[in-house]
């Protein structure tokens, strides 16, 4: 048996006698022997802790509790209902505000929605360059533009 197996065995057979093979290992391995002694120490500690008497309920504990419950039943349940409803209202308002803020803060374009902002700006300036000069008709190249009207 190796050290790891011995330590697992100590954990598994907590409070029980170890088999002869394990005891033999302990007699030859200082590390495992110290581990085993720590286990015995802990077991004794748990035993001492378990012996500690828990406190007793004070006189009239149950009747005081029932009185409190009846008081709570009369007023607490109602106020708790309003508290719950109020809390839900606050959460809903917060969620709505957050959604609104997000919709304002996020760019109106994106990979999902369509052309990215930078591309959009680029397209816009390109379109401006291609726009025919309605006054003079001399600027820009209108060949690539389909303005919807008849072309000569």
């Amino acid at each position: 048996m190796d050290c790891r197996a011995i330590r697992d065995l100590i954990g598994e057979r907590w409070g029980e006698e170890l088999p002869a093979e394990a005891r033999e290992h302990l007699s030859q391995c200082a590390g495992c022997e110290a581990y085993w002694r720590r286990a015995l120490f802990l077991q004794a500690g748990f035993h001492a802790l378990a012996e500690e008497t828990p406190p007793q309920a004070s006189f009239g504990f149950a009747s005081r509790l029932v009185r409190r419950l009846e008081e709570w039943d009369a007023t607490g349940a109602r106020s708790e209902f309003f508290e719950t409803v109020g809390r839900r209202f606050v959460y809903a308002t917060l969620a709505l505000t957050l959604a609104l803020l997000l919709s304002l803060a996020l760019p109106s374009t994106g990979p999902v929605r369509g052309v990215a902002g930078a591309d959009f700006l680029g397209l816009q300036s390109r379109n401006q360059a291609l726009q025919p000069d309605v006054v003079g008709g001399e600027t820009g190249d209108t060949h690539e533009l389909n303005l919807g009207g008849p072309t000569e």
Binding site: L40, G45, A48
Partner: peptide, 25 residues
């Protein structure tokens, strides 16, 4: 903690052991 496996502890030692393991817990 380094003492041999505690057996036949007196009340004071038991209290110390209880305190020690309680704190460890």
């Amino acid at each position: 903690a380094e003492s041999p496996p505690p057996q036949g502890l007196d009340q004071g030692e038991k209290l110390a052991l209880r305190d020690f393991v309680g704190r460890l817990l």
